[in-house]
Simulated scan of single mutants.
Amino acid sequence: MATNSRQTLGARGEDLAVAELERQGMAVLARNWRCRTGEIDIVAAEEGERGRTLVFCEVKCRSGLGFGDPLEAITWAKLRKLRALAAEWMTVHRASAVDIRLDAIGVLLMRGQAPRLTHVKAVG
């Protein structure tokens, strides 16, 4: 698959992930936030009884199952990096929250089928 096609697929998957988080009542604060350490796909805020939870979300999108489920691509190393990126985002934005959560959303976009999203909360 060409790089442009992968980028298009990834952008579509992230759009669907954002729509799902918003459907759940979260406010999306940032998309594709980059720094020298790496990139966070989505930063969202969820208001709860105790206050605000910041949600740092990794999105993986695939067009088929030939390489496994999209969520299988999220390794412990990736989660460790996401934790570091979350801390950096909070420092840069001087953000505070009662809780912080790392989520993952797998998006499967198979031709001729409706998109399939799997949202896993608190993955790491």
Results as ranks from 00 to 15, higher is better:
Leu71Gln: 02
Gly106Val: 03
Gly68Pro: 02
Asp99Leu: 05
Val120Glu: 12
Trp89Asn: 02
Thr37Phe: 12
Arg94Phe: 03
Lys121Phe: 08
Arg23Trp: 02
Ile74Asn: 00
Ala45Ile: 02
Met90Gly: 02
Met110Ala: 05
Thr8His: 05
Arg52Leu: 05
Gly66Asn: 14
Ile74Phe: 05
Gln7Ser: 04
Val28Arg: 11
Gly10Ser: 04
Leu54Gly: 14
Ser5Leu: 15
Leu71Ile: 09
Val107Tyr: 10
Glu88Asn: 10
Ala27Gly: 04
Ile100Cys: 11
Ala27Lys: 15
Arg23Ser: 12
Arg52Phe: 01
Leu21Glu: 12
Ala122Thr: 08
Phe67Ala: 15
Arg111Gly: 02
Lys81Phe: 00
Arg83Thr: 10
Glu88Lys: 14
Ile42Asp: 11
Gln7Asp: 07
Leu102Gln: 09
Ala44Ser: 15
Gln24Trp: 07
Ile42Pro: 10
Glu22Lys: 13
Ala17Thr: 00
His119Phe: 01
Thr91Phe: 08
Ala27Pro: 01
Thr8Ala: 09
Gly10Gln: 02
Gln113His: 15
Val120Ser: 08
Ala114Phe: 05
Ala114Cys: 01
Leu65Thr: 12
Asn32Val: 02
Phe56Leu: 09
Arg36Val: 01
Ala104His: 09
Glu39Asn: 04
Met26Pro: 01
Gly124Trp: 09
Thr3Glu: 15
Arg101Leu: 07
Glu20Asp: 12
Ala44Met: 06
Arg111Leu: 03
Ala87Gln: 11
Leu54Asp: 09
Met1Tyr: 05
Ala97Tyr: 15
Leu65Lys: 03
Ile42His: 10
Val120His: 14
Asp99Glu: 15
Arg80Phe: 02
Thr118Leu: 02
Leu29Met: 13
Leu71Arg: 11
Phe67Tyr: 09
Val18Gln: 07
Glu46Thr: 01
Leu16Gln: 01
Gly13Leu: 07
Arg101His: 06
Gly112Pro: 08
Glu20Arg: 13
Ala44Asn: 10
Cys57Pro: 06
Leu21Arg: 06
Ala77Met: 02
Arg62Cys: 08
Leu54Val: 14
Gly64Ile: 10
Leu82Ser: 00
Phe67Pro: 00
Glu46Pro: 01
Asn32His: 04
Ile105Val: 13
Met110Trp: 08
Gly106Glu: 08
Ala114Met: 01
Leu65Trp: 01
Glu88His: 11
Val55Cys: 14
Val18Arg: 09
Lys78Phe: 00
Thr53Gln: 08
Arg52Ser: 04
Leu79Phe: 02
Ala11Lys: 14
Thr8Ser: 10
Ala45Pro: 13
Arg36Gln: 10
Leu108Ile: 03
Arg52Pro: 03
Glu47His: 11
Lys60Trp: 14
Glu22Arg: 15
Cys57Asn: 10
Val28Gly: 04
Gln113Glu: 14
Lys60Met: 08
Gly48Ser: 13
Ile105Trp: 00
Arg116Phe: 06
Thr91Ser: 10
Val120Leu: 14
Glu20Tyr: 03
Arg62Val: 05
Val123Cys: 12
Gly10Pro: 00
Arg94His: 13
Gly48Met: 06
Gly48Asn: 10
Arg80Glu: 09
Asn4Glu: 12
Trp89Lys: 05
Glu72Arg: 06
Cys57Glu: 03
Ala27Thr: 15
Arg80Asp: 11
Ala84Trp: 07
Leu21Asp: 13
Met110Pro: 00
Phe67Thr: 13
Ala2Lys: 13
Cys57Thr: 15
Leu117Glu: 03
Gly112Asp: 05
Lys81His: 06
Val43His: 05
Val18Asn: 06
Asp15Arg: 13
Gln7Phe: 09
Arg83Ala: 10
Leu85Met: 12
Gly51Val: 04
